[in-house]
């Protein structure tokens, strides 16, 4: 691609391009031209990828401004949002005690809840998934239960866990756990069931022990499936924590939004929503990147 690209400009500039006799191509190895023309495709592909979302974003902001810019609009226009919340945006680290803290502290608190709940879900989910995937009886016994439990909306668990834990902290973590554990279990078990018989035969011939099979065959062969489950799980837990925090109160981006609504700080809500979206996106990319790194080579055969 690049090689033909750097060869073409000169004949093209000379008028109508001759249909590439090889002699013309060899004739122009100018260094600086080569660097520029080599960069050009990279830049243009970068532009092709970043321009469309930028255009859409600008168009959306302009549209929003036009819709809400007039006096008496129910929702603030983007310019008003920025003006209202400028202090909040530029200083995410302030801490006036209580729940009057910068965005960083709210998000960090929400993330720490997700980290704890999601980590427990990952460990339990992978363990149960391997069990269900490997044992026909475990699958027959547990799978119907999982299929029913996983459809229960996250917040429906909250009253029950508040009753059980009698404390909002562990309750929120339990909601995260119970929300994100199902896709991890289900994807892991599918992965274990899909391990090629060949790998099991190899393990049998080498006489790997139960534990060695688990570590050296089952886990690596299942990694792509596990990370699919983890990705879905982390997305769900981020969805759940915002809603759960609205109910349990305290520091956290979810309660921040609820508190802003109660004090009619609509601009704060909009900024918080942007943060929530960006953090959710970053969480998804993080798991996807780790998964891609850990599972390199495992899918190809």
């Amino acid at each position: 691609m690049t090689r033909t690209a750097h060869a073409l400009p000169a004949p093209a500039a000379a008028g109508h391009a001759v249909d590439a006799p090889s002699a013309t191509i060899v004739a122009l190895p100018a260094r600086h031209v080569r660097l520029a023309t080599r960069l050009a495709p990279a830049l243009s592909s970068l532009a092709a990828r970043t321009l469309p979302p930028l255009i859409v974003l600008v168009a959306a902001l302009v549209g929003w401004e036009l819709l809400c810019g007039h006096p008496g609009a129910r929702l603030p226009a983007p310019s008003k949002v920025v003006a209202d919340t400028w202090d909040f945006i530029v200083d995410p680290f302030y801490d006036n005690g209580g729940i009057d803290k910068g965005a960083f502290w709210h998000i960090a608190r929400s993330l720490s809840r997700v980290a704890v709940g999601f980590s427990i879900a990952a460990v339990v989910g992978i363990a149960l998934g391997v069990l269900v995937g490997q044992s026909v009886w475990a699958m027959r016994g547990l799978d119907p239960l999982f299929q029913v439990l996983r459809t229960i909306p996250p917040l429906a668990w909250l009253p029950l866990s508040l009753a059980g834990f009698r404390d909002s902290g562990p309750s929120a973590i339990f909601v995260i756990f119970i929300t994100s554990v199902w896709p991890i279990i289900i994807n892991t078990s599918v992965g274990v069931r899909n391990i090629p018989q060949d790998y099991r035969d190899v393990a049998a011939v080498i006489c790997l022990s139960w534990w060695e099979v688990f570590v050296k065959i089952t886990l690596p062969a299942t990694v792509p499936y596990i990370f699919t489950g983890l990705r879905i799980g982390v997305g769900l837990s981020w969805l759940a924590i915002i809603a759960a925090e609205m109910l349990i109160g305290g520091v956290g981006i979810g309660f921040f939004i609820w508190d802003a609504w109660n004090s009619s700080r609509i601009s704060d809500i909009i900024v918080a929503l942007v943060y929530v979206g960006i953090v959710g996106f970053l969480l998804d990319r993080l798991i996807a990147t780790v998964g891609g790194f850990v599972s390199r080579g495992t899918t190809a055969n």
Binding site: V202, V205, C207, P220, N301
Partner: peptide, 27 residues
Amino acid sequence: PGPDRAIVFQNHSLLPWLTVYGNVAIA
């Protein structure tokens, strides 16, 4: 099954996440 009757499988059955060296070394 046992290593005294090692099998060369029809479709090679190498573990894709291990290197060439790793596939022999695991055995």
